[in-house]
Amino acid sequence: MSESASDPKRTVSSSAEGADPQRRSSAFQIEDLHVWFGNRAALHGISLNIPVHQVTGIIGPSGCGKSTFLRALNRMHEFIPGARVQGRIRLFGEDIYEASGDPILLRRRVGMVFQKSNPFPTMSIQENVLIGLRLAGTRNRDLLEERLEEALRMAALWSEVKDRLHAPGIELSGGQQQRLCIARALAVRPEVLLMDEPCSALDPIATAQIESLIRDLGQRYSIVLATHNLQEAGRTADCTAFFLEGRLIEFGSTKKLFTNPSQKQTEDYLTGRFT
């Protein structure tokens, strides 16, 4: 499906051209987000709207709060002792930190792919892809079959693994494992996909495959991609946010941010003049 839908000629700038990302309809509306770990503040009041059906890149040096920001969006900080989140995050209008909100249901709507591929080592490729659905209680075999193929095709992995769906997931190569994790996240059909430096542990060829996959998926999913690789953001993201020391410095279309940044700090970072 998606493999045929990919359009290699599609460029980042064309899809985001002329669009003010703040005005488009938003997947996430984030207002004044603060995160603390113990007494240390990691994010100081981030306000940002994540547009629907686009790839939003989050760039910035290590420790600038990219991961922290991403993990606030699916309430992953709740597992870290001492972590506190303040502010308002709305997913298609619903406040995700509201007392009545269920983090389990939220995480089914907001999938996540991690820096290091993490397939479940005791499960086969198929079990890895379907585990999210099984956790959600899906028993219908036809549906499981259908979603298995769909997710693997969307992750551009189907042709490589369709003959060995029962092989252990960890037998795959690093890049394939990362695509398996993407398939695992997609199988539950999330509304948003969070990707935390998904290519940082991969070689250039695997990176190129995942990046083209992200561009394809960006047409149908709202993706938030944290990366410390500027070229990666430039190649894949429709709009980009630049974080520095827990603050949002600049947010705009990728083309604008990369060619004509309005903030001096952004320009310094992009040109490598950074202390």
Binding site: N74, F79, I104, R107, G111, F114, K116, N118, I131, G132
Partner: peptide, 25 residues
């Protein structure tokens, strides 16, 4: 931690994290 996180991110409950990510490992 990455395995636990994988299960959490898929919407697993504590019990399911234990069953899916922890015990098999």
């Amino acid at each position: 931690l990455t395995l636990r996180e994988a299960a959490w991110a898929l919407g697993a409950t504590r019990w399911e994290v234990m069953r899916v990510a922890v015990l098999p490992y």
